[in-house]
Design a protein around this nucleic acid. Sequence first.
DNA 1: TTATTATAATTGATATATCAATTATATACA
DNA 2: TGTATATAATTGATATATCAATTATAATAA
Lengths: 146, 146
Amino acid sequence: MQDEALDEVYYFLMERVIRKAREITKQQFAAYGNPVTVDQWILLKKIAEREGVSQKEVSDKTFKEPAAVTRTLDILDKKGFVSRQNAQGDRRKYHLYLTEAGRAVYNQLLPTVIAIRQAGIDDLSGDERASLKTVLKKMYSNLETY
Amino acid sequence: MQDEALDEVYYFLMERVIRKAREITKQQFAAYGNPVTVDQWILLKKIAEREGVSQKEVSDKTFKEPAAVTRTLDILDKKGFVSRQNAQGDRRKYHLYLTEAGRAVYNQLLPTVIAIRQAGIDDLSGDERASLKTVLKKMYSNLETY
DNA sequence: TTATTATAATTGATATATCAATTATATACA
DNA sequence: TGTATATAATTGATATATCAATTATAATAA
């Protein structure tokens, strides 16, 4: 176990895939003049997919700390890509929206992101895809109950 | 595609597993008084597995930037867990070694880390494990040639 | 040999992540 | 009702990551 080759370790293999996808995404964004970083993109996308989400929700779904969300949103706000609007029912909360400029950036970058995601799984069979999902979900639930 | 549920996206599922494993590891290290952070552990482990490695090698294998490796090693050095020794043949390089204290920390934490890693894959069948490896390697190579 | 190019590690500047504490508000309950 | 507890977001302090530039040395080529 201790001598197992590094590239046989599942976590290593996963991390390698994620890092590579991130790296490529960053490169591709550069071609559009880096309107956002990859981390900013993740928030932008989450807001685009459900306008009006709260920061808490974004934090939960992206695994980013609330503090990180606050600060990244500050940047996206300063760039003019998102707006925070107080929730009427609960004055602690904000509803998050894309501005027109934010929506434009989202629409511009999304095809690129989808293409990268697709490229990664392009040659996987249906069985392989199904197994991957199942296994990743199992692993998570195994760890969750550790 | 755009409306695909978040938890159906492979990258999301992978990141979730990795984050959870990290989180648990951090918790477990706390029980030992946090001798190292998870990032420091990764370097410690790499050195333990091949005493004398260069920083470049560590950087390559852990995906950490050379700059990050330098600074994390500074911390591990300050803590008295690693030592850098000039390579005789090439004076740009350092060979990295664990100190006695570093080795002790490594031996103390390794079983915990192995247990966590094992817990994640415990109930996976042989086929599932094989498929996972195959698929993760495929994905990486797909992305690599993007 | 000398000049050019490549490599290993470091440093500085900046960005982002993490953790704990804080503020404002909401919810639960005595 | 008032009081305690929980929640959403923020802030400050610190750690770590990232990127570009720099230093020292090595390898290559003229």
